[in-house]
Amino acid sequence: MSRISAIASKRIQQEKKLLIPYLVAGDPDLPTTLALMQELVQQGADIIELGIPFSDPASDGPVIQRGVERALDGGTTLRDTLALVVQFRQGDTETGIVLMGYLNPIEIMGYENFAASAAAAGVDGVLVVDMPPAESTELHRRLADADIDTIYLVAPTTSADRAKDIAEACTGYLYYVSLKGVTGAAITDHEAIRESIESMRQLTDLPVVVGFGIKDNESALAMASVSDGIIIGSALVEQIAQLSGGDLEKPELPQCCAVIGEARSAIDSL
């Protein structure tokens, strides 16, 4: 069983929800990202989605775009991101790590090299935003050979037939995009999301988690109550934007990650 599946099974057994924060590797710098990841675990993260910085993040809203720009200003690369996972794994073998990003850096590194390096680093899953299943055959195979889950998105615009195919291809967890738009926009139609997730459940035994647009306890509760877990990205990256970077003994790290701790408390009350 993959680490992600084990984490999910445990949570489901406990009748708890998965809490998955997203942050960008190297935002504002790599040592701070490592400290943030450790703090996120302290505050209740089950799995961490680690963003691979890319110059053209066309599916992201302004908050994550700026996070990516901060990481790129510091020269953070895909190799740095993998090295960060190696460092994190030295102190933590429990928390799931999913790399999330765009295809070009992976394409330039080479699929085989990437899959091997990610496996060696201790990566559990990969989500490539601009690589739908039809284009992912080879990378998916390489990742599967390396025992890494390939996670796909299902959107409000995804047809029923297509959702079925995606659910069959997907491993780890199924990522339901809560809105038409980019990361960090506002969720408007809770009832439609509930219905969509219900229909996803008919298609797959994978955990179904919701992301894009969860920014406070209210939206966290609403989305967690209809799913197996929630992803919080922009609301965290907005806090990280306030950090100064450089100082590892930062007292502000717990405050920065409080949005995750509060979400943990909120969804644990369900």
């Binding site: 599916s59 998105l153 959107a155 615009t157 047809s159």
Partner: peptide
């Protein structure tokens, strides 16, 4: 070529 876009745009 191909179709390398986020899932939200695939239907479009």
């Amino acid at each position: 070529g191909g179709v390398f876009v986020g899932e939200t745009l695939i239907a479009a």
